[in-house]
């Protein structure tokens, strides 16, 4: 099977600093993969490389068999990669519903002229995206908060809204950057179930970064371990737990 996302020998330099080096990763369609590693290991840098926020200094990144190196972030999203952010980046002053509606942007089928004259498909498309946005909000238990301003949501709800918004861009690959950060154990458990469920429901492939080991071990089928910008191990959760390299590097203190 051809991998959905494939990074080959990717290097990223910031000035003289190697943020990511000789980075190899592949994700098959339908997988739920975790990317873990200590702080500053380069996890978010990897996400930024996959989504076009940064361009790799060297190496190749392919999505659906085609190179995405050199594409702008919005072009990559349009090809089917959506993401959430570690430091939440909602459209803070807008309503919850509008946050999600904006993400349908690329899939709205009416032109500028139809929009300003309110002719053609304007009304039907607006109705459609509103219905679809509400459906997504319902999945994430945000439908009752649809009119609320995004910045007023509790932290956990903001994280869920980020995921709902990313799904509205109808991605094939969803990148989640520390989705459980700042959540309590119960919220984390609910989130794990939800991630699992949306993967099956939407036929998604998911790559997630997480600090919370229980979350990663609990739901990921395969895990990559990153240290100082390099992949030091990959395998199933069980393999990772017993990998001496990982125990040394990541769980060092506890070993």
């Amino acid at each position: 099977m051809e991998p959905l996302l494939k990074a080959t020998r990717v290097n990223e330099m910031f000035g003289g600093l190697k943020a990511v080096s000789n980075f190899n990763l592949h994700i098959d369609p339908g997988e739920l993969v975790g990317l873990i590693g200590p702080n500053g290991a380069g996890k978010t840098t990897a996400f930024n490389l996959f989504t076009g926020v940064y361009q790799p200094t060297e190496g190749q990144i392919e999505f659906l068999g085609k190179s995405i190196v050199g594409l702008k972030p919005h072009q990559i999203t349009q090809r089917g990669i959506a993401r959430t952010f570690q430091n939440i980046r909602l459209f803070a002053e807008l309503s919850v519903l509008d946050n999600v509606k904006i993400a349908f942007h690329f899939h709205v089928r009416y032109g500028l002229a139809e929009a300003v004259m309110r002719i053609g498909r304007y009304y039907s498309e607006e109705q459609r995206i509103e219905n679809e946005a509400m459906k997504l909000l319902k999945i994430f238990k945000l439908d009752s908060l649809a009119e609320e301003t995004a910045k007023n949501l509790p932290y956990g709800a903001q994280r869920r809204l980020e995921i709902a918004r990313a799904l509205a861009a109808s991605p094939k690959l969803l990148l989640l950057d520390e989705p459980a950060a700042g959540m309590n154990p119960q919220e984390t458990q609910e989130l794990m179930d939800m991630i699992h469920w949306i993967r099956d429901q939407f036929g998604l492939t998911i790559l997630l970064i997480e600090h919370d080991m229980s979350l990663v071990m609990g739901i990921c089928e395969r895990i990559y371990v990153l240290e100082y910008g390099e992949i030091i191990a990959q395998g199933t959760p069980a393999e990772i737990q017993h990998n001496p390299e990982v125990i040394r590097a990541y769980l060092g203190g506890e070993a």
Partner: peptide, 13 residues
């Protein structure tokens, strides 16, 4: 509201 998030939602800024 947020240029980076807008681009991540597929909007050509």
């Amino acid at each position: 509201e947020n240029e980076i998030a807008a681009a991540a939602m597929g909007i050509n800024i």
